[in-house]
Each structure stands twice: as C-alpha cells, then as structure tokens.
Write a protein that binds this DNA or RNA. Structure first.
Length: 501
RNA sequence: GCUGCUAUAGUGUAGACCGGCCAAUCAUGUAGGACUCUCACUCCUACGACAGGGGUUCGAAUCCCCUUAGCAGCACCA
C-alpha cells in the first residue's frame, strides 16, 4: 500500500490517529539552556582563514548558531587572521562560501587584521596599569624559568621602560623572536600554562595579505579584547580552549571587564578523514587529494559534493550537542540525517554498474513505466522502451536462474551453454515472487548514458537512464544502490558522487 | 612530568545540579517481520549501556574517595 493510500485508509478507520501520522518528526532535540541568556545573546564564530571549513568548524559554528536563533541576538563572524603564517589569502572567500552553504545566521563580520590599532591601544593600556611587560628573553630560556615558577629579569622593568620598549617594537626596531609582550599573571600558578603568557609578538615574514604590519597580537590577547569590545555574552568552543579561558581571564580582570559565559565541548574525533588543514593542504599539494573538495576529506565542500545537505550537517551537530565528553563523529548518523531529508525529494533512476548486455529471447517489445518516486505518484514515470536487448548488472544475474527486470518482465537464465542464454519468462510479478527471484534494475541498450559513480572506496563505471542528465546538482536515488549527487554531464557522460545507501 | 576536563548500548544522546518516579530515554545501527515491481521509504519486534573498586544512605547512573582509561593545555598558533 502506498503512503497516500494508507493515509486515506486510516482516515476511514481511525481518523483520530491522523494527527499522529501527520506529525512532522521533529528531529532536532532541545539543547540545554544557556546561563543568563534569557534576554538575548551575542555569540561568535571565529575561524582562522587557513583553509575552507570542515566538520570541526561545523560543530562550533552550528552550535553557536543554534543558540543565537534560540535566544535571539547577534552572531559575529570574526576572522582571526593575526598570524600571517597561517593565513591563506584564498581562504577568506572559501570560509565565506562555506558559511553561506551552512546557512549560518551571521549578523556582523569583523576582521582582526583591520583592528591592529585597537589591540596596540589596549596593549599599551595594559602595560600602563602594570598588567604586562616587554620581555626580551629567549623563548627557550623563558620556558625553563616558567616551568620552575621563576620570574625573568624583564618582569621587574618599570612601566616607563616597558612603554619605551613597546614603542620601539611598534617602530620596527626589533626583529622576529627578539621580543614579546607578556601578560603578568601568577608565576606560582599550579598550571604552568597560566604563567605569564605572550600577548604580542613580531612577524617579519611572510607579509600579511591584508595589512602592512609586523607586530601582531597573540590569540589570547586579541580574543579577550574583542570578546569584550564586541559585547560577546556566551562562547561555545572546544575544550582545547579551556586553558585559554583561564588566561584570558587575567586580561578581563586587569581591565575590570566581565567575562562571557563559556562552554567547552569535548574533542570530536572523525574516523576516516584528516581534519587538520595543514595535512589536507599537504595532501592536495602532493596529489593524494584532488582538491579541497576531494570526497575523502571532511571539508564542507567535499561533503556538499557528495550530496549531503547542510540541514543534515546541522541536525547531526545538534544531536551531538555541547557535551564535554570526547566523541567519535559518526558518519552513519550524519547519513541517516541526510537520508531523511533527501529520500522524499530524490527521483529514482536505474544505474547499472559493471553491466552485461543480454538478448532476451522471445521477448515482446515492451514499454516499462517506472515511478520517479514510489511514494509520490504525482511526479510521474520514466518510460523505458526495449525490444529485448538490455543491460543488467553482472553481479545480479550471476548464478541465478530467474530474475525480474523491474517494471518490465521476468527472464530465465540458462547457464548450461558457454555464454548464458537468456529468455523471456512472462510478465507476471507473482511468478517472480513465487520463486523469490530478485527484482533488478536494467537499461535498454538503445537508451543509456555512460555514468561514473565516484565513491570513497573507488569509482564504479556503468550506465544510467538518459533522464539523469537533467538532474545535475540534484541528489537522486539509484535504485538498489543508494543516493548520489549528479555532479556533471560532459559530452553525454554522467558523473555522480555516491552519498550513502 | 605539571595542570585540568570527561567516563551511560557499536555510534550519538537523555537522566546526574535538587539520590527513590531509571530492571535507564530517544535516535542511529544490527537482526527478523509487515508493506512494496528498489537492498529506498513507512510500520512492527528483537538486540544492546550506567568504566572498575570502595564509601555515605533505608535507597546511588545520580553524592564522596581511589583506580583505570581517554582527551586537552603547558607556543613569540588559533
């Protein structure tokens, strides 16, 4: 019974249950409330423009987005490009595109490279109130002292001395590595990570693509200053930032600012793909991957190419939530989220992988009509006409005596001869059912398009229905194979990417 | 090594703050079945977990301690 049929039948026998049937299965669960968010929130997504967005970014950005939507407020995109070494000029645009694809409700955009003067300004103020000093020690030497909880000589410089050194830093009198501005914290702090961390440093090379400067803030300084200046109320980020939250507190305390409310979710491991931008870049360079959208990668563009819908990513991330437990990202769960989105939409087509051509002896000319979507007859049918020469998947007839060509007729296969001998075995579906013959997809030899199905495990070549050429950019379902996104049609050759079953 | 966070089925998640209503929720997965001219969808059934050990208590998944394991930070990266 089809879905509409079931519905009308239910209306007859138990109309009171109809509501239950129509109930949209609201998949996304409710995440825990945010502390003090009742009157709206200001949150941020702060990627480093070193490459396109991947699943790790997706979690951060979607979780923050979820709460901004829930409580109302502003959602700031803050491009954290304060390390010229880690800026890929092309990434600014890629990040922008990926955000658009994800459908994030960004309300404000700021580039940290536009705000260097702001950081310089607050750095000077921090020095003036004795909250920071300019350190000329070697990094290694300082590290040793820090681990022992001892102060370096620079720590005792006067404010005036520090201000002068700071000015000389800005004037370009120092080179990279010679000098750094440190926030004065607590050398006796039990966690060595908290002790006198760096706030400003010099980078001479490479040149920053957006700004002419050599003095750059370190993340903990610029983030603290920006979070306050931009009025950020809540921050949701990975637990790798727990220590940074503690470090940033010193700056907030020095200036008498109120810290946002922080939530730190656990580490998300993703099986099967590399997530580090640098190793992805390396792989692309060395030819292991075809590009940022290589289907073996966990980038948004790679996932999109495979026909995963942004809403599926969103739902999967909200399912995961903001728990502090370390988790393994499950492709299965994402695929399931995608399937619930894509199944009602995807038209059905035949794709015959690894085909063999057979001549069905005694077959009458037949016109098969297969539904474009079994649960939605209003979409119509594909019509496949054959006089008896058809393509079938080799693997599906091997060792079989009888199979049914879906929506066409039954065929008998005789394996006694050298080449299998195929003959017409009647139209009746019941006959096939009775002997439990599999119902398989097929194609008329007269009407087929070469089709390559790209999968992570390797490409599969075969043929598909001509109508697939009209589905470029859409997700279709190849019957008995799975869902795939039709990527392109080039000279009558179809290229599709496998999503999932 | 130092500091900190976490531990519920194969995977994700609820319950934990305010112990009893939890022989533990939901989703996914797997297996079986119904429906179906797809191994899709839908529906039904089954499977499967409180890391281990102590303690507090009439009663612990929930509170305390220890152990174990995983993770993170200890950068002039973000």
């Amino acid at each position: 019974m089809s879905r509409p049929d079931r519905k009308s039948l239910l209306a007859e026998i138990a109309p009171e249950l109809l509501d239950e049937l129509n109930e949209t299965h609201e998949r996304s669960r409710e995440l825990p409330a945010l502390l003090g968010a009742e009157n709206g929130v200001v949150m941020r997504f702060a990627p480093n423009p070193s490459g396109p967005l991947h699943l790790g970014h997706a979690r951060a950005s979607i979780l923050n987005d979820y709460y901004v939507r829930r409580y109302g407020g502003r959602y700031v995109l803050r491009i954290e490009d304060t390390d010229p070494r880690r800026v890929d000029p092309g990434a600014y645009a890629m990040v922008q595109e990926d955000i658009e694809w994800l459908g994030l409700g960004i309300t404000d955009i700021v580039y940290q490279s536009d705000r260097l003067d702001v950081y310089y300004d607050w750095c000077r103020k921090l020095i003036e109130i004795g909250g920071a000093y300019v350190c000329v020690c070697e990094a290694e030497r300082f590290r040793e002292l820090k681990l022992k909880g001892k102060a370096c000589p620079c720590r005792d410089q006067t404010v005036e001395e520090n201000l002068e050194l700071w000015q000389r830093m800005l004037d370009g009198e120092f080179y990279e590595g010679d000098v750094t501005v440190r926030v004065k914290t607590d050398l006796a702090h039990p966690d060595p990570a908290m002790r006198d961390y760096s706030a400003m440093r010099i980078v001479n090379a490479p040149l920053h693509p957006r700004v002419d400067a050599t003095v750059f803030p370190l993340m903990n300084f610029s983030v603290a200053v920006d979070d306050h200046l931009l009025g950020i109320t809540h921050v949701i980020r990975g637990k790798d930032h727990i220590a940074n939250t503690g470090r940033q507190r010193y700056i907030f305390d020095y200036f008498g600012w109120k810290q946002p409310v922080y939530y730190h979710y656990g580490r998300m491991g993703i099986s099967g793909v590399v997530l580090s931008t640098s190793s992805m870049r390396e792989g692309i360079k060395s030819g292991v991957y075809t590009g940022w959208d290589d289907i073996h990668l966990g980038t948004m563009r790679a996932i999109a190419r495979r026909g995963i819908q942004p809403e599926a990513v969103r739902n999967a991330m909200i399912d995961i939530g903001i728990g502090e437990t370390d988790i393994t990202f499950s492709w299965e769960n994402l695929y399931s989220r995608n399937k619930e989105l894509v199944d009602p939409k995807a038209n059905r087509y035949f794709f015959v992988p690894d085909p063999v051509e057979v001549d069905v002896e005694g077959a009458p000319r037949h016109e098969a009509r297969a539904a474009l979507h079994p649960n939605d007859p209003s979409r119509g049918v594909r019509t496949l006409v054959t006089a008896g020469r058809v393509l079938v998947p080799k693997a599906d007839i091997e060792g079989r005596e009888m199979v049914r060509l879906k929506d066409l007729y039954n065929i008998r296969i005789d394996w006694d001869t050298d080449a299998p001998h195929v003959s017409y075995a009647g139209d009746l579906l019941e006959d096939a059912r009775r002997v439990k013959a599999p119902i398989i997809q097929w194609l008329p030899v007269e009407a087929k398009l070469p089709c390559i199905l790209h999968r992570q495990e390797g490409d599969v070549e075969g043929f598909c229905e001509p109508l697939v050429a009209g589905e470029v950019d859409n997700v279709v379902q190849f019957e008995r194979i799975g869902f795939a996104r039709v990527d392109s049609v080039d000279g009558g050759r179809v290229s599709a990417y496998f999503a999932h079953r």
